[in-house]
Design a protein around this nucleic acid. Sequence first.
DNA 1: AGAACATTTGAACAAATATTCAAATGACAA
DNA 2: TTGTCATTTGAATATTTGTTCAAATGTTCT
Lengths: 119, 119
Amino acid sequence: MQGKIEKCDIICVNHDAVERVTKDMMDNEFLQKMAGIFKVLGDPTRVKIVHCLSKEELCVCDLAQVLEMSISAISHQLRVLRDRRLVRHRREGKIVYYSLDDHHIVNLLRECEDHVNHD
Amino acid sequence: MQGKIEKCDIICVNHDAVERVTKDMMDNEFLQKMAGIFKVLGDPTRVKIVHCLSKEELCVCDLAQVLEMSISAISHQLRVLRDRRLVRHRREGKIVYYSLDDHHIVNLLRECEDHVNHD
DNA sequence: AGAACATTTGAACAAATATTCAAATGACAA
DNA sequence: TTGTCATTTGAATATTTGTTCAAATGTTCT
């Protein structure tokens, strides 16, 4: 897996730095979760959905209309968001209303927003 | 593109809500940028790299050693991070040192960290 | 010049993913 | 029940993406 690392050992690698950073490394499971959260938001459609739902509760049709996309596409993405517990759903007759389950996520959006603005 | 939306118009769609949310919608370019940032961080390898570099400057070999991955794989990911301006590089002889270009990103990491912890 | 080494790059491949289409639920009304 | 509508789901497809391998840079030393 690590092809030419042996030749690197003596000259190039800063062992102290490697040891320091390795010691402070978060464990793999934690990092996987972090990357997971970023990945969910790493799609324009899903960011839009989350942004919309941060304003108010909406049904699938509403979202499809706002995003100008097919209902099926929206529903698929809502399922992803639901699996990750970002979004909650509530049935009222035939209509299913979606809202943010995890309002903490909005902070991430805002932070990212600031970042883009500060560019 | 929007298959069954016509039938939805009268009964299911809440026109007021749609109009409100549509009005408050960020423009597409902005959302694309936001999703772009999240996408870059939506990979375990890259989160690890950014996390390492938030501690101290490191060369490619160091990173490969810390992450236990091939130098080529690391280099490819560093290029992605470089293209997105998250990371800066500095050459010293044969060795190329990488460091965070955009320290603002660390806030995003921290916010995400909090989120995972608060689970 | 040549050798040795750190890094980059491009092609290739496998795995993940977003959207579309068609069919299946689930709810309500006639 | 039958029909209609909102939503979900599964299969299929096209695209994106992470890693590997081999070859190419760029640097230093002799």
